[in-house]
């Protein structure tokens, strides 16, 4: 497939100079309209290039706007206080504190709870779908997972607030508050489960049959083959899906806004109580309107920049894992 693409790419530029060359041989007698065709061809090329450049502009725009406002913010509040401060209370009028650590640990708390739910379930689902499921079972289960992935996050938030908390958590743990991190974390875990399952399944399916057959031939059971041969061979892809899942959990917003409340937590949050994550802080502050040019407004961008840096790092690690440790089988 790669080879085919290479040829395709080589063919396109190879042909166009010929067309242009034909135009320049007979510059005066232009019966074919090659010249105007040339011009419009170039124009279209430029337009298409610009379309491609929009994505680059988006990145420039994101980094630009985040850095610009964050720099203004750091001129007012020392980066040391921001990154190492352990109390977050920007809304207090006298002596507001801008220590971002509670927001980061809030985000991580949600991510950890989500991972506890999603990693084992996602991996086991992937093994089932890739190694065990008969085609008819797959034909039913895959669309269900896709459906689960297509549900908007606000719906999961509603589910966490009105079902998971009162019907699941509070009967078991009566001290659970109405707004709590645990329900939000569980809902985030359910939300990213389909992604982990489907990416890990792809990784497992990419392992060649020959490895499985060799294992069976040595007398290994299906379980031994799956867990000791196929999973290790697909490990880079599985880890990549895990890291992508963490990144999604870190960036998740509405579930946390709806279900985890609005009170910033301590550095070590209580999962049964309220907390604020970086994402939910941004939405909750803007719901109360932050006028442009105020410290409050700039704080959003400083927090946004921290969030952006974290998710970018995770995404890059995930891509690197896939590229670096991909097993190539002939």
């Amino acid at each position: 497939m790669n080879e085919e693409r290479l040829i395709g790419q080589a063919a396109a530029p190879g042909v166009s100079p010929m067309v242009m060359g034909g135009g320049s041989i007979a510059p005066r007698l232009d019966l074919s309209g090659a010249r105007s065709r040339n011009l419009s061809e170039r124009l279209i090329g430029v337009v298409l290039f610009l379309c491609g450049a929009v994505s680059l502009l988006t990145t420039v725009g994101i980094i630009g706007v985040l850095v610009f406002e964050a720099v203004e913010f750091f001129l007012e509040i020392s980066p040391l206080d921001f990154f190492f401060g352990t109390e977050w209370s920007p809304q207090i009028n006298q002596n507001p504190l801008y220590g971002v650590i509670p927001l980061i640990t809030g985000t991580l708390t949600i991510a950890i709870i989500a991972m506890i739910i999603t990693l084992p379930l996602g991996l086991m689902s992937a093994i089932y779908l890739a190694e065990y499921a008969a085609p008819p079972a797959r034909a039913v289960l895959k669309p269900v997972l896709e459906l689960l992935a297509g549900i908007p996050t606000i719906v999961y938030g509603y589910f966490a607030l009105t079902f998971i908390t009162p019907n699941v958590l509070q009967p078991i743990l009566p001290e659970t508050e109405v707004f709590n991190a645990l329900s939000a974390g569980i809902a985030v875990g359910i939300m990213i489960l389909p992604m982990v399952a489907s990416l890990s399944e792809d990784a497992l399916r990419a392992v060649p049959r020959a490895l499985r057959e060799a294992s069976f031939a040595l007398g290994a059971t299906k379980l031994e083959t799956s867990t000791r041969i196929v999973v290790p061979a697909a490990l880079s892809g599985i880890f990549a899906s895990f890291i992508l899942a963490i990144s999604r959990a870190v960036g998740e917003t509405m579930i946390i806004v709806v279900a985890a409340g609005s009170r910033p937590a301590d550095v070590i949050p209580n999962p049964l109580g309220q907390l604020q994550a970086m994402t939910s802080y941004i939405v909750l502050t803007l719901s109360g309107d932050a006028p442009r040019g105020t410290t409050e407004y700039r704080t959003l961008f400083a927090v946004g920049l921290t969030l952006f840096a974290m998710t970018l790092l995770l995404n890059i690690v995930s891509q690197w894992l896939v590229a670096r440790f991909r097993e190539v089988y002939q």
């Binding site: 994101i62 985040l66 941004i282 998710t311 970018l312």
Partner: peptide, 11 residues
Amino acid sequence: AGVPSVVYGLL
């Protein structure tokens, strides 16, 4: 594709 949607909101 991996940037959190809330960051697009800030953009």
